[in-house]
């Protein structure tokens, strides 16, 4: 790899990192897992003046599940930490389902959850999962911390709402209204391929009634697609074959796919619809079993 020339700093604290970013005036990039940034450096698509490596800052690698069910994920938490977490399958089945579909096992050992959300790739899995879950990002800058909802955080392809002197230090999944259920399905041509279509569906259940519904899509638009409105009809309802089909069609209609070498836009909508039906049917069957 022969990138353009760049400076390198390796701060030991978040405050120190923010000071370096602030001083750089916008020409610095945070290096966390590097699984998107380093390939871009290699191809010289990215040529920052300075890399601020945050890997030597202690205390940023954690998954905390709080008593009320809130999940907090630190800036240096690797994808594989989510994949192998014992708590996530119960605390957040959507994240648990997505974790082993992110990139490939090699990338998952190094790449970070928060970094992936910050990268804001329209095909990124975590931004979609976080959107479906109604999560937010905690950003820290020279003037302290602020909270940004993920749907406002990802402002476009490869664009996030961080100021140049802010670091996304934590991702937060709010406490569910009832039991957190849901899943994540992805069609890819090969492990590590960008998604042809990905679907996240998150349902908070009280008994067999939907208390909250969220959905988001990756790979089927120029940005992460928030399809939460499309599943709003499920709230207050039990899952039935009929309302599952209605929701699936609404989610498919929310997709904005383009025809390309991965398939036509109609094909991608068909995948979205199929995946929503599969996820919701699976949830309906398991809630019946419980009931």
């Amino acid at each position: 790899m022969y990138p353009s020339r760049f400076g390198y700093e390796s701060p030991k604290t978040v405050e120190e990192a923010i000071a370096i970013l602030d001083a750089s005036g916008g020409d610095a990039k945070i290096l966390a897992g590097g699984q998107s940034l380093v390939p871009m450096l290699k191809l010289r698509f990215a040529a920052p003046e300075m890399l601020v490596d945050i890997n030597n800052i202690d205390g940023l690698r954690y998954i905390n599940v709080e008593a009320d069910g809130t999940v907090r994920i630190g800036a240096l938490t690797r994808h594989e930490d989510l994949e192998y977490s014992d708590e996530l399958p119960t605390a957040s089945p959507v994240l648990a389902a997505a974790a082993h579909l992110v990139a490939d096992p090699i990338v998952r050992t190094r790449g970070t959850f928060v970094g992936s959300v910050c990268h804001a790739d329209p095909q990124g899995d975590w931004a979609a999962a976080m959107t479906a879950l109604g999560g937010h990002i905690v950003a820290q800058g020279p003037n302290g911390k602020r909270t940004i909802e993920v749907k406002d955080f990802v402002i476009g392809p490869f664009q996030n709402a961080l100021a140049y002197n802010e670091i996304a230090i934590e991702a937060v999944i709010p406490a569910p209204k009832g039991k957190s259920t849901g899943s994540y399905l992805k069609l890819e041509r090969r492990v590590g391929d960008f998604a042809t279509a990905s679907v996240a569906v998150s349902l908070d259940m009280v008994g067999d009634v939907v208390a909250r519904a969220g959905s988001a899509l990756a790979g089927v638009g120029g940005r992460t697609i928030d399809a939460t409105d499309a599943v709003a009809s499920l709230v207050g309802q039990k899952l039935t074959e009929e309302n599952i089909k209605t929701a699936a069609e609404a989610v498919a209609a929310a997709a904005e796919p383009r025809s390309d070498h991965r398939g036509t836009s109609d094909y991608k909508r068909q995948i979205v619809k199929t995946f929503v039906i599969r996820i919701l049917t699976g949830l309906a069957e398991s809630s019946q079993k419980v009931a």
Binding site: R190, G192, D193
Partner: peptide, 11 residues
């Protein structure tokens, strides 16, 4: 190799 796909041991 993101556009030219070679199968891995995975698939």
């Amino acid at each position: 190799y993101m556009d030219y796909l070679l199968p891995t041991a995975w698939e």
